[in-house]
Amino acid sequence: MREILQYIHKDAFFHRLHPGTKIFLILVIGVITLLTLDIPVLCVILIAVLCMAFIGRVLREVLQQMALILAMSVIFILITLITMPSGEVLGYLIPGGFLPVTTGALYAGVLLTLRFAILIISFQIFVITTQPRDLVNTLEKMGVPIDYNLMFLIALRFIPTLQIEATKIHEAQLARGYAPGSGFVGRIKSVAPVMIPLVSNALARTTVLGLTIDMRGYRTRTRTPFREEHMHLLDKVVCVVIGMVLIAFLGIRVFPLIS
């Protein structure tokens, strides 16, 4: 089974960084990406992020998400073609003058896709190289309320469990002669025999999950600092570099716009 967004135990560059450093890094990447309207620059950032994955030895895991990113890009471009036509008409999606392909819409679609890819990949690098416990502790120290932390943690934790469970349910229904329907309506209808047990079982779990969290004193007792991650020299160097990149970007891209 392909695991989505699960921590992978390795000894590599990003694994050695403090979670705080990595949070700073993805925030800066996010800011730069969202402030950039220039496709070549976004391409450079995307390549840089992929290089980061390579350095962190998680490139293979990152590339596994490419199918999702490609699918999303097709959807983005279709949406922009339909909703925001502008600029020159390059051709028509449906021959006979329907659904014009315009330069403006194409530009917007590609822009969205690149931003989306960069954000997804950098977030993924962050999550799969950070032990959830360190992640939660760091977020807690940064003042994120424990309930939000737990929500994030539990969402990550249950992704593979739900994947496994969905497979089991699917098999159980296949054995009952269930045949996933064809066509759009058939597909929607055939979702019920798998989704209803999956969601019911997940909901049935929430009571025990909630009780477990309370009985461990998660939301009430304070934590003894233990095996704390500290900022090392490497973290400081990386933070300074990220800071310089951010300042340089703001200097080149943003200040000219203001003045």
Binding site: Y7, Q131, L150, L153, L209
Partner: peptide
């Protein structure tokens, strides 16, 4: 399953 919150045994 419902009582395991973290992503490793030690955690």
């Amino acid at each position: 399953e419902a009582q395991l919150i973290f992503t490793s045994v030690e955690e």
